[in-house]
Design a binder for these strands. Structure first.
Lengths: 207, 207
DNA sequence: ACTCATTCTTGACCTCCGTCAATTACCGCC
DNA sequence: GGCGGTAATTGACGGAGGTCAAGAATGAGT
C-alpha cells in the first residue's frame, strides 16, 4: 500500500484500546467538526474516514483519508483542544474514542513510544506529500495518486466510494472529476463503471 | 507570533546540542536536497530556513519556513532516511546537525518526551493549516497570512527577504506577487519599498 | 560615474478549474 | 411499472494564476 504509511502494531492498538468500547458509525456520520473542543482522539478499527477542512463558502480540502488500523485527531493530545479539521465516515466504520490521557502512560515504554513517534513522523511525511500533490498536480495526476496509494498500480480496482466522495478526496468539484473521467475514457486510459475501475498501465505513468 | 507554533524550551535544546558543534551557513546555502540520504536532523539556532519541494519543471512548493529555536528534518528520525524536501537558508543562519540517535535517549525522560511530541503535533497542525491555506486562499490572502504569522498584524514591517524569496515562501511566481503588490498599492492597502512594508489595517481584514 | 548582472515589473496570452444551470442517468420505493 | 429524489453529466462562461518575453530598475564592482 502506501510507502508513506507507518502502521501501528496490533500490540500497540490493543494496549491503547483495552477496556474501551468501540462504536459502530454508519457511512456519513460526522465524528467531529473543526473548531469543536475535544479531549479524545480516535482509532479506526474498520472502515474509512475522511478528514477535511471547509471554507465559509462551501469548498472543502481533504487533508487525509484515514484507513483502518490508524489513529487520527492525535492533534488534540497536547495542543489546545479544538479539532483543526472535520471527520466524516465515508464507509460504515468502527471507531474507538480514546481519552487523551490514555496514551501518555504508554509512552513510558520505549518500544511503544518509538512506534508512536514513528507513526506521527509518517503522518508529517504524508501531509508534506499531500501539500506537494495538491499544489502541483492536476486532477488526472491527483486521481492517479489517490488510487495508487489506496490500491497500488493494479489494472482492476473495486472502489467503495461514489464519485462525489472521490472528488472530495482529491479536493475537486464533482463536475471537474466527471470531465476528467470522460477525457480519460476517450484516451482509453481508464473506465469507471459502477464500483469497478479498469485501468490501462499507461495511466500510472507519471506517478 | 504564530499560534500554531509550539516552541521547544531552552533546556531541551541544550540537552540536545550538548557537545555538538554549530555551523554558520550563509544565506543561500543548501543544507540538503530532497531524496538525499541523511541520518541527521537539524536545530536552527539563528536565522531562517525554507523547506520546499520542487517539481521537475522548476516550480516549487514551500512546505515550511523554519524559525530560530526549532528543529527540522526530524522526519529522518525513524523513517527511511531520505529527506522528503530540500532546505535552503534564506538568511545567514546558525545550525546544528544532530545525529538521529541523540534524540532517542532524551525521550526516556517524560517531560522532554512530551515536549518533543507536543512540538511534532504542532508541526502537523501547521502542515494541515498550510495545506488549507495553499488550496483555498488567493495570493493576497497568502501574503497577508505569511506576514501576519511572522510579524503579527502590525502597520510597519521590516522584511529580510527579497521579493523572489517572498514569492517562493507563499508558493507563487515572482510575476504574480509583483502584480498582487501593484494592485494592493493602488488600493492603498500596502506599500513595499526596499526592506520596509507599510500596511493598512484593512489589509489584515480577512485573516 | 559607468557597466554589467541581477532583480523586478509589465504586457499579452493561455490553461485549468470553479461556477451556475440545464439535462440525463440511476436507484429505491410504494 | 411508474415516481421522485439524488447523483452524474454536459455546456457555457469566467477568473486566478502560470508562461514567455520584453523592458525598467536596482545595485555592486571597478
Amino acid at each position: 500500500m502506501s510507502d508513506l504509511f507507518t502502521h501501528l502494531g496490533e500490540d500497540f492498538l490493543e494496549r491503547l484500546g483495552e477496556g474501551l468500547p468501540a462504536r459502530e458509525i454508519p457511512r456519513g456520520t460526522i465524528l467531529f467538526v473543526e473548531g469543536q473542543e475535544g479531549d479524545h482522539f480516535f482509532c479506526l478499527l474498520r472502515g474509512q474516514v475522511r478528514l477535511f477542512r471547509s471554507t465559509g463558502d462551501g469548498r472543502e480540502v481533504t487533508l487525509h483519508m484515514v484507513e483502518a488500523g490508524d489513529l487520527f485527531a492525535e492533534i488534540v493530545l497536547f495542543e489546545r483542544d479544538t479539532y483543526p479539521a472535520s471527520a466524516v465516515a465515508v464507509e460504515d466504520s468502527l471507531v474507538r474514542a480514546v481519552p487523551r490521557g490514555r496514551l501518555l502512560g504508554l509512552l513510558a515504554e520505549a518500544p511503544l513510544r518509538e512506534e508512536f513517534i514513528r507513526n506521527l513522523v509518517g503522518k508529517m511525511r504524508f501531509l508534506s506529500q499531500q501539500l506537494y500533490v495538491l499544489a502541483t498536480m492536476d486532477v488526472r495526476q491527483r486521481l492517479a495518486r489517490f488510487l495508487a496509494v489506496r490500491f497500488g498500480q493494479v489494472p482492476l480496482i473495486t472502489l467503495d466510494l461514489n464519485k462525489q466522495e472521490t472528488a472530495a478526496a482529491i479536493s475537486v468539484r464533482p463536475e471537474t472529476l466527471s470531465r476528467a473521467l470522460t477525457s480519460l475514457k476517450e484516451q482509453g486510459l481508464l473506465r469507471w463503471s459502477g464500483k469497478t475501475i479498469t485501468v490501462d498501465p499507461r495511466f500510472w505513468e507519471d506517478l
